[in-house]
Amino acid sequence: MTTDASRPLLEVSDLHLRYGGLRALDGVSLTVNRRETVAVLGANGAGKSSLIKAIYGVEPFSAGQILFDGVAVSGRSPNQMARAGIGLVPEGRKIFPSLSVEENIRLGAAIGGHDSADVDRVFEIFPELKERRHVQGTLVSGGQQQMIAIGRALMARPRLLLCDEISLGLAPTVVDRLYDVIGDLVAEGMAVLIVEQETNRALKSSERYYCLLEGRVTAQGRSAEADQDEITRAYFGGDHD
């Protein structure tokens, strides 16, 4: 299967998702190109996490279309997404207490499908994890747990990485470190979709952005050209001028 390199890697069009009567996503469309970092901004409850969950097949959506590398992947399970080449760094990290640091990372390879990247590569990126490889996964610091979650997603050699709120609750130096790593990964050819509440941080580390409010895209553009006032309006809605 040869793919058109000019075509976006991920194409989400007109995605709708409801929880009961609540509209979590109301016609969201976005694209992520190869070797690109795209940020999705928005306040709590704007639909950011629902978007990640809908893309990754965790929450079944009611209407819309998702193409990954030109192939329709709507309705697939998270396992099939992982096999197709999408990695998830979930909100809240989801580290398993029964597994050691190293096993938590290896779990990413155990998901199946791809040849596993070497754990050593993850340890090269995050040397502090190597020292604590035999410690229970939930007993290391929050920053290190976030590194485990990223390392775990890298084990299946994804072409697209979905990162859900990776800066949440972490010290700024740690966050810088994580975003540096993500920058390196993009330089190596990966595409990344980050969901962030911290607007400045996300704009600094991305090429393009989308802003969500009440399940709708209220602003989008190049991160470098983003206008602070426009973002604020798109972020909070209403008239804030």
Binding site: K94, S98, L99, I111, G112
Partner: peptide
């Protein structure tokens, strides 16, 4: 084994294991 890692992850939390892509 890899399978053992999966089993223990599922045993910890089926929901989280499913989320990160384990085939439950």
């Amino acid at each position: 084994s890899r399978f053992g890692i999966r089993v223990r992850a599922v045993s910890d939390s089926e929901e989280n294991a499913r989320l990160i892509g384990v085939d439950i």
